[in-house]
Amino acid sequence: MSKDKITVLYVDDEHNNLMSFKATFRLKYNVLIALSGDEAMEILKQKHVDVIITDQRMPNMTGVQFLEKVLETTPDPMRILLTGYADMGAVVDAVNKGKIFHYLAKPWNEEELTQSIERAYEVYKEKKEIVEMNSKLAVSNDQLEFLVRQSLLS
Protein backbone atom coordinates (compact mmCIF):
# COMPACT_ATOMS: atom_id res chain seq x y z
CA MET A 1 0.00 0.00 0.00
CA SER A 2 1.28 3.48 -0.81
CA LYS A 3 1.75 6.14 1.83
CA ASP A 4 -1.58 7.65 0.81
CA LYS A 5 -4.48 6.05 2.60
CA ILE A 6 -7.14 4.18 0.68
CA THR A 7 -10.40 6.14 0.73
CA VAL A 8 -13.31 3.93 1.74
CA LEU A 9 -16.96 5.01 1.67
CA TYR A 10 -19.14 2.93 4.01
CA VAL A 11 -22.93 3.17 3.54
CA ASP A 12 -25.31 1.79 6.16
CA ASP A 13 -28.62 3.03 7.54
CA GLU A 14 -27.62 2.01 11.09
CA HIS A 15 -25.67 4.78 12.81
CA ASN A 16 -24.02 2.34 15.25
CA ASN A 17 -22.60 0.30 12.35
CA LEU A 18 -21.16 3.45 10.78
CA MET A 19 -19.50 4.50 14.04
CA SER A 20 -18.13 0.99 14.63
CA PHE A 21 -16.69 0.85 11.11
CA LYS A 22 -15.14 4.30 11.43
CA ALA A 23 -13.64 3.53 14.84
CA THR A 24 -12.19 0.25 13.59
CA PHE A 25 -10.74 1.43 10.28
CA ARG A 26 -9.99 5.16 10.70
CA LEU A 27 -6.28 4.58 11.33
CA LYS A 28 -5.83 2.30 8.30
CA TYR A 29 -8.01 4.14 5.79
CA ASN A 30 -9.52 7.50 4.99
CA VAL A 31 -13.08 6.59 6.04
CA LEU A 32 -16.16 8.37 4.73
CA ILE A 33 -19.60 7.34 6.00
CA ALA A 34 -23.17 7.82 4.81
CA LEU A 35 -26.55 6.89 6.31
CA SER A 36 -28.22 6.41 2.92
CA GLY A 37 -27.57 5.86 -0.75
CA ASP A 38 -28.59 9.43 -1.51
CA GLU A 39 -26.16 10.83 1.07
CA ALA A 40 -23.42 8.60 -0.36
CA MET A 41 -24.13 9.88 -3.89
CA GLU A 42 -23.57 13.43 -2.64
CA ILE A 43 -20.25 12.40 -1.11
CA LEU A 44 -19.20 10.78 -4.38
CA LYS A 45 -19.87 14.08 -6.19
CA GLN A 46 -17.46 15.88 -3.86
CA LYS A 47 -14.77 13.36 -2.89
CA HIS A 48 -12.54 10.79 -4.54
CA VAL A 49 -13.35 7.25 -3.35
CA ASP A 50 -11.35 4.08 -4.02
CA VAL A 51 -13.62 1.46 -2.40
CA ILE A 52 -17.35 1.55 -1.61
CA ILE A 53 -18.84 -0.77 0.99
CA THR A 54 -22.61 -0.81 1.34
CA ASP A 55 -25.22 -2.63 3.36
CA GLN A 56 -27.89 -4.32 1.25
CA ARG A 57 -30.96 -3.71 3.40
CA MET A 58 -31.62 0.01 3.66
CA PRO A 59 -34.83 2.03 3.38
CA ASN A 60 -35.57 3.93 0.14
CA MET A 61 -32.67 2.35 -1.78
CA THR A 62 -31.11 -1.10 -1.39
CA GLY A 63 -27.38 -1.58 -1.60
CA VAL A 64 -27.75 -3.07 -5.09
CA GLN A 65 -29.85 -0.11 -6.26
CA PHE A 66 -27.25 2.25 -4.82
CA LEU A 67 -24.40 0.42 -6.59
CA GLU A 68 -26.32 0.50 -9.88
CA LYS A 69 -26.67 4.26 -9.47
CA VAL A 70 -22.95 4.55 -8.67
CA LEU A 71 -22.08 2.76 -11.91
CA GLU A 72 -23.94 5.42 -13.90
CA THR A 73 -21.97 8.33 -12.44
CA THR A 74 -18.80 7.01 -10.78
CA PRO A 75 -17.90 3.56 -12.13
CA ASP A 76 -14.25 3.50 -10.99
CA PRO A 77 -14.48 2.68 -7.25
CA MET A 78 -14.47 -0.99 -6.33
CA ARG A 79 -17.71 -2.14 -4.73
CA ILE A 80 -18.30 -4.49 -1.78
CA LEU A 81 -21.76 -5.57 -0.58
CA LEU A 82 -22.50 -6.40 3.07
CA THR A 83 -25.70 -7.99 4.24
CA GLY A 84 -26.92 -9.65 7.38
CA TYR A 85 -29.38 -11.75 5.43
CA ALA A 86 -28.76 -14.90 3.41
CA ASP A 87 -30.49 -13.42 0.39
CA MET A 88 -29.05 -15.11 -2.70
CA GLY A 89 -31.24 -12.96 -4.94
CA ALA A 90 -29.53 -9.86 -3.58
CA VAL A 91 -26.11 -11.39 -4.15
CA VAL A 92 -26.95 -12.32 -7.74
CA ASP A 93 -28.34 -8.83 -8.37
CA ALA A 94 -25.25 -7.27 -6.79
CA VAL A 95 -22.95 -9.23 -9.06
CA ASN A 96 -25.00 -8.74 -12.22
CA LYS A 97 -26.34 -5.21 -11.73
CA GLY A 98 -24.03 -3.58 -9.20
CA LYS A 99 -20.86 -5.18 -10.57
CA ILE A 100 -19.58 -5.85 -7.07
CA PHE A 101 -16.04 -6.95 -6.37
CA HIS A 102 -16.91 -8.94 -3.24
CA TYR A 103 -19.80 -9.99 -1.03
CA LEU A 104 -19.50 -10.30 2.75
CA ALA A 105 -21.97 -11.32 5.45
CA LYS A 106 -22.74 -9.17 8.45
CA PRO A 107 -21.58 -8.94 11.11
CA TRP A 108 -18.30 -8.27 9.38
CA ASN A 109 -15.01 -9.65 10.58
CA GLU A 110 -12.26 -7.00 10.77
CA GLU A 111 -9.55 -9.20 9.25
CA GLU A 112 -11.77 -10.47 6.43
CA LEU A 113 -13.02 -6.98 5.62
CA THR A 114 -9.47 -5.59 5.69
CA GLN A 115 -8.35 -8.29 3.25
CA SER A 116 -11.32 -7.52 0.96
CA ILE A 117 -10.56 -3.79 1.00
CA GLU A 118 -6.88 -4.39 0.29
CA ARG A 119 -7.63 -6.80 -2.60
CA ALA A 120 -10.24 -4.42 -4.00
CA TYR A 121 -7.74 -1.57 -3.91
CA GLU A 122 -5.10 -3.65 -5.68
CA VAL A 123 -7.58 -4.38 -8.49
CA TYR A 124 -8.56 -0.69 -8.55
CA LYS A 125 -4.89 0.33 -8.97
CA GLU A 126 -4.33 -2.29 -11.68
CA LYS A 127 -7.33 -1.00 -13.64
CA LYS A 128 -6.03 2.58 -13.35
CA GLU A 129 -2.59 1.48 -14.56
CA ILE A 130 -4.10 -0.31 -17.56
CA VAL A 131 -6.07 2.80 -18.52
CA GLU A 132 -2.92 4.91 -18.18
CA MET A 133 -0.84 2.48 -20.26
CA ASN A 134 -3.52 2.32 -22.96
CA SER A 135 -3.56 6.09 -23.11
CA LYS A 136 0.23 6.20 -23.52
CA LEU A 137 0.05 3.50 -26.19
CA ALA A 138 -2.56 5.51 -28.09
CA VAL A 139 -0.30 8.57 -28.05
CA SER A 140 2.69 6.50 -29.19
CA ASN A 141 0.58 4.94 -31.93
CA ASP A 142 -0.56 8.37 -33.15
CA GLN A 143 3.06 9.58 -33.21
CA LEU A 144 4.17 6.49 -35.11
CA GLU A 145 1.38 6.90 -37.67
CA PHE A 146 2.40 10.54 -38.12
CA LEU A 147 6.03 9.51 -38.74
CA VAL A 148 4.96 6.85 -41.24
CA ARG A 149 2.82 9.38 -43.12
CA GLN A 150 5.68 11.87 -43.15
CA SER A 151 8.02 9.19 -44.44
CA LEU A 152 5.60 8.24 -47.23
CA LEU A 153 5.17 11.86 -48.28
CA SER A 154 8.88 12.57 -48.57
Rank of each mutant, 00 (worst) to 15 (best):
3 K>Y: 15
3 K>D: 15
3 K>H: 15
4 D>G: 10
5 K>A: 07
6 I>F: 08
7 T>G: 00
7 T>N: 00
9 L>E: 03
9 L>S: 02
9 L>K: 02
15 H>C: 06
15 H>A: 11
16 N>E: 15
18 L>A: 11
18 L>H: 10
19 M>D: 12
19 M>Q: 13
19 M>K: 13
25 F>K: 00
25 F>Y: 06
26 R>K: 14
27 L>E: 14
27 L>V: 13
28 K>N: 14
30 N>S: 12
36 S>C: 02
42 E>F: 10
42 E>T: 13
43 I>Q: 06
43 I>F: 05
45 K>A: 10
51 V>I: 07
51 V>F: 03
53 I>A: 01
53 I>Y: 00
54 T>P: 06
55 D>Y: 07
58 M>W: 05
59 P>E: 08
60 N>K: 05
60 N>D: 06
60 N>E: 06
61 M>E: 03
64 V>N: 11
65 Q>D: 14
66 F>K: 00
68 E>F: 04
68 E>D: 06
70 V>D: 03
70 V>Q: 05
70 V>N: 04
74 T>P: 02
75 P>V: 12
76 D>Q: 10
77 P>H: 01
77 P>A: 01
78 M>N: 01
78 M>P: 01
79 R>L: 07
79 R>M: 05
83 T>L: 03
84 G>T: 09
86 A>E: 09
87 D>A: 01
89 G>R: 06
90 A>Y: 00
92 V>K: 06
94 A>L: 02
96 N>T: 09
96 N>G: 09
96 N>Q: 15
97 K>A: 02
97 K>Y: 02
99 K>C: 11
100 I>R: 04
103 Y>H: 00
103 Y>N: 00
104 L>R: 05
106 K>G: 03
107 P>A: 05
108 W>I: 06
108 W>K: 06
109 N>P: 10
110 E>V: 15
112 E>T: 13
112 E>H: 12
113 L>H: 06
114 T>E: 14
116 S>Y: 08
117 I>V: 13
118 E>P: 08
119 R>M: 04
121 Y>W: 11
122 E>D: 10
124 Y>W: 09
124 Y>H: 10
125 K>L: 08
127 K>Q: 11
128 K>H: 09
129 E>Q: 08
131 V>D: 14
132 E>M: 13
134 N>Q: 15
135 S>F: 13
136 K>S: 10
136 K>I: 11
136 K>C: 05
136 K>F: 07
137 L>T: 00
141 N>K: 15
142 D>P: 04
147 L>V: 08
148 V>R: 13
153 L>H: 14
154 S>G: 12
154 S>A: 10
